[in-house]
Amino acid sequence: MPHISLNNLSISYGNHKVLHEVSVDIPDSQITVIIGPSGCGKTTLLKSLNRLLDLNDDVSVKGNVLIDGVNTYDPKADVLSLRKKLGFLSQRPYPLPMSIYDNIAFGPKVHRLTQEQIVQQIRDLEGRSFQVPERKNGAMDVLVESYLRLAGLWDEVKDRLRTPASRLSIGQQQRLALARALAVEPEAILADEPTSALDPLSAQLIEKQFKFLRNNYTIVVVTHILRQARRIADYVIFLYLGELVEHGPAESFFKSPKDERTRAYISGEIS
C-alpha cells in the first residue's frame, strides 16, 4: 500500500470547484512532480494532503486522502500526527522568529522528545552509534548539526548558530526550512514551488538536496517549470484546469505522453 493515495478527491472554494475527482497513488521513495499551468489547482492538491487547506475559510473537500491507510479527512483522524508525517516547504520560506539552532530544535522540543528519544533519532538518522557530548543539551546539539548537514546548510551556518534565522539569505532559509521539517522525522516532504523565490544557484542546491533525499523520503514537488520537472522527476502528475489529465513515470510521461493536452503542454503550446 502506498504511503499517500488520493481517491476521488474534489475540492471547492465556496462554489468554485477547483479539483475534479482526482485519484492517484503517489509512489514511495521517489520524487513525484505535480505540474500544470498556474491556477490549475497544484497548490490546492498539495495542501489537501496535510490539511493545510483548513486554514482557508469555506473549503469543502469530497473524496479522501489516505496516508498510510488512514483517511486524512475522517473527522476522527489525528490531524497533528498526520501532519507530522508530511514535512512541508512553502513557496516563500518563513524562518521562525528565533535563532538558526532553535529553528531546528523547535520541532523536537515542542513534541517533548526525551534525551533517549533524541539519541535514538540521531542513531536512526546516521545509521551508527555515536558519542553524546557531556555538556548540557549535548544530544540536541548533535541533532541540530545532523539535520543541518542533511539539508546541506551546516558549513554555511556552523559559526553562527545562535544568530536569528531571518538574517540568512532566502536560499539558505529554504534549506533551513527543509532541515526544520526533517527534524520531526516525516515520511514525506511536500514542497510547493520551493525554488520560485530563489536565485538559480540556490534553486540548484534545493534540487540537489531533493535528489539526495529521495531514497529515504517520499517527495512531492509542485512546479510550473517544465525544465525543473524534467531534471528531478521520477514520477509526474499533470493537472489541467483542476483535472488530473495524465500521470506516470517521468520517462514515459515526457517521451510518449498519451493525452493531447499533455503533448501540447510539454511542447509549450499551452502554459
Binding site: N50, L52, L82, P93, Y94, V110, R180, V184
Partner: peptide, 10 residues
C-alpha cells in the same frame, strides 16, 4: 507561510 510552516510540523 508562517502558519503553514509551523502547523506542518504537527
Amino acid at each position: 507561510a508562517a502558519r503553514e510552516n509551523s502547523l506542518a510540523l504537527g
